[in-house]
């Protein structure tokens, strides 16, 4: 059952984990997380909160960079290098290939996000001399991870039919718009023009609402203590990804390799 998908996923995991660019980004992210303690000393307010705030922001930022820039190459690189011919000439349905690629990258991102969260947790605890710890970091990181999964699915979807450059532009636009959909709905309603209101609504429901995964502020104020916060976003993420991947599979199944 699904051996094709799982083998492709395992191979993609191996591919991404052996990707040097990934380590460059990761090293930079860890450097920035380490630097937060230094930055915190320069700012006002509850310094430990600043560590959490900046740390989560860097996990988010670098996670998005990894998800998008590896995500867009997942499928397109296989087509460019024609490795896809070998895989698809084996008894592997095309949809299993698409799902396997996305799953493999999600596994890598999961590992890396978890690793960054652990580092941040330790840095924060160290800053507090171990007196208090902030488990909310893991809740917020899980939220970030769900967003990364969604972006990975979007990037794979775009890369089944456009070039990597366009896929990157589309996915990054989705990322940016995805964080302001609520505002778009709000301003669309405010504008008084029915067309603008309709457009705002269409965007709100069609494009991903990525703010739903944002537990950074909640974590900063020490309120993200329960994983049950994540249930609704999880359901949203799963259904959104299912829809996007379904489209990706349909497009990829009809693809004529030239």
């Amino acid at each position: 059952m699904l051996t094709g998908m799982l083998s492709v996923a395992a191979n993609t995991f191996r591919e991404t984990i052996r990707n040097k660019i990934l380590y460059a980004i990761l090293a930079f992210a860890l450097f920035v997380i380490g630097m937060t303690t230094f930055l915190a000393n320069l700012s006002f307010g509850d310094l430990a909160r600043v560590v959490v705030d900046l740390g989560l922001a860097s996990i988010h930022l670098f996670g998005v960079v990894m998800a998008v820039f590896i995500g867009i190459t997942l499928v397109s690189q296989e087509i460019d290098r024609k490795t896809v011919y070998i895989i698809l000439s084996k008894p592997v349905p095309r949809w299993e290939f698409v799902l396997g690629k996305a799953l493999g990258l999600c596994a890598t991102l999961g590992l890396i996000t978890f690793f960054m969260a652990v580092v941040l947790y330790l840095v924060h605890a160290g800053y507090r001399y171990g007196q208090t710890t902030e488990p909310g970091i893991f809740v917020a990181a899980a939220g970030i991870y769900m967003e990364l999964v969604l972006l990975t699915c979007l990037a794979s979807f775009f890369s089944t039919f456009t070039t990597p450059v366009l896929s990157a532009i589309f996915t990054l636009s989705m990322f940016l718009i995805g964080h302001i959909t609520r505002e778009l709905l709000f301003f669309g309603g405010k504008s008084g023009s029915p067309a603008a209101a309709w457009l705002g609504k269409a965007i709100y429901y069609l494009l991903p609402n990525l703010e739903i995964f944002n537990f950074k502020n909640v974590a900063v104020y020490g309120l993200a203590r329960s994983a049950s916060l994540l249930l609704l976003p999880l359901a949203y993420m799963l259904s959104y990804c299912a829809a996007v991947l379904l489209l990706a599979c349909v497009i990829f199944s009809r693809k004529d390799f030239k």
């Binding site: 191979n11 191996r14 591919e15 490795t83 011919y85 070998i86 084996k90």
Partner: peptide, 30 residues
């Protein structure tokens, strides 16, 4: 496709794998 073996023109493989790993992957896919 389990009954068919195919070698494409100018084949190209996952360069991050070793030959053995690559054949193992192909075997699992089959």
């Amino acid at each position: 496709r389990r009954r068919i073996g195919f070698m494409p023109e100018q084949p190209y493989f996952y360069e991050y794998l070793t030959g053995r790993e690559f054949l193992a992957l192909c075997g699992r896919l089959c």
